[in-house]
Design a binder for these strands. Sequence first.
DNA 1: TCTGCTCTGCTTGTCTGAGGAGTTGTGTTA
DNA 2: TAACACAACTCCTCAGACAAGCAGAGCAGA
Lengths: 222, 222
Amino acid sequence: MAQLRRAPLADQAAELLLERIRSGEWGLGEKLPGETSLAPQLGVGRSTVREAIRQLAGRGVLASRQGAGVFVTALDAPEDWDVVLRRAGIVSVIEARIAIETEAAALAAARRTPADLRAIRRALAQRAEHRSDIESHVDADTAFHRAIVAAAHNPVLIELFDSFTPRLREAMIDMLRIRKEFGSDADHAAHTELADAIADREETAAAERSRTHLLTLREGLT
Amino acid sequence: MAQLRRAPLADQAAELLLERIRSGEWGLGEKLPGETSLAPQLGVGRSTVREAIRQLAGRGVLASRQGAGVFVTALDAPEDWDVVLRRAGIVSVIEARIAIETEAAALAAARRTPADLRAIRRALAQRAEHRSDIESHVDADTAFHRAIVAAAHNPVLIELFDSFTPRLREAMIDMLRIRKEFGSDADHAAHTELADAIADREETAAAERSRTHLLTLREGLT
DNA sequence: TCTGCTCTGCTTGTCTGAGGAGTTGTGTTA
DNA sequence: TAACACAACTCCTCAGACAAGCAGAGCAGA
């Protein structure tokens, strides 16, 4: 009626099972009914039930042991970072970015290799070229900042940066569309100074310039 | 041979497929071979292939559309934080913690409520009490630092902090077991000063004290 | 030439029946 | 009481059949 049976039965069955798990019908570590009894209960065939279970197993909610049964391993899918970031308001996300990026800038100043420096300079040039189109400007900007984080040679920081960018991209595009001031000379100069500080191995200067730039960004998004 | 068939065929097939995806055999958005041709390729039945696909679909790697085929939706399962943190050396993790915690200290100084302050003071007192047992000392210490991050009122930062602590706990316990110097008066004084800076709303002082404390921690873990 | 239709082959979706293999609890036996 | 054998239950895997949906080829009409 409402859905025109758009979703496959196995997906529907998985969703149904997840709901019953969330409702507390089966507690953590408890055993689900066998597939042979679950199938008629859900009104589907046995293989469909199996596929639903496999799907939830892939998400870490269920685990099946041959001969023993299917058990609940998590009461809910582990919260996706996506979900946390989406619920957390844009300001919180950018504050987190400030945290990791100022630290990364300092580390980059200390650790950057000549290759890192070339990558940063190249990204900076790219960034200067894309001053007209909003989207490509934002992408070029993130690429530049990413190059700096990469120069910090810390896998955790780069992973964090990458998990933030999708969420921030939309917000930044929206902001620039409203303010219409981007790609200004002052803006570009600030970025050049940041790159120079890293080139000159000036840790505190790099951190400071990174911070001030991001703080103005936060103001724009508030 | 090596595994004695410990894992179900469907799991093995899923792992095999994921490997081939990671190796770039099928790019993002590309279509996999049909189940009927994939099955003999992997040496299993069609339903087993289907279960493997469902498992990867649950992890967000694949998506199947009836009549069209199975498509790659992500080149890699969004790496579990656990995995990233475990593979990234302890130094990288603590650098990430430095990043978020100094920022959090500054924010806490700006935003802390009286209730936050009470929680921080209480955690500090708890920390002072547990000077003998290593494990409980580490736990009390993390609880204190967590109270500070909580006072920053930023859900992303607290989530990050929580995801780091399990990994750091083991490392800190190991370190203290070797060095045997913990719970010293100087150490406790540094923490008290940090709490005072937050109480007095001195942002830069809070950030600075937090940073220096964590830097010494990093030295210890190197 | 372009548009729109139908038809056909291929793909995934679902069900069923049959064995294989592992686990768990029960009952028997020494 | 302890060790063993067994049976009932579970998931695991396969094969075959048919339904449902998609995409491209080919054709007919404008």
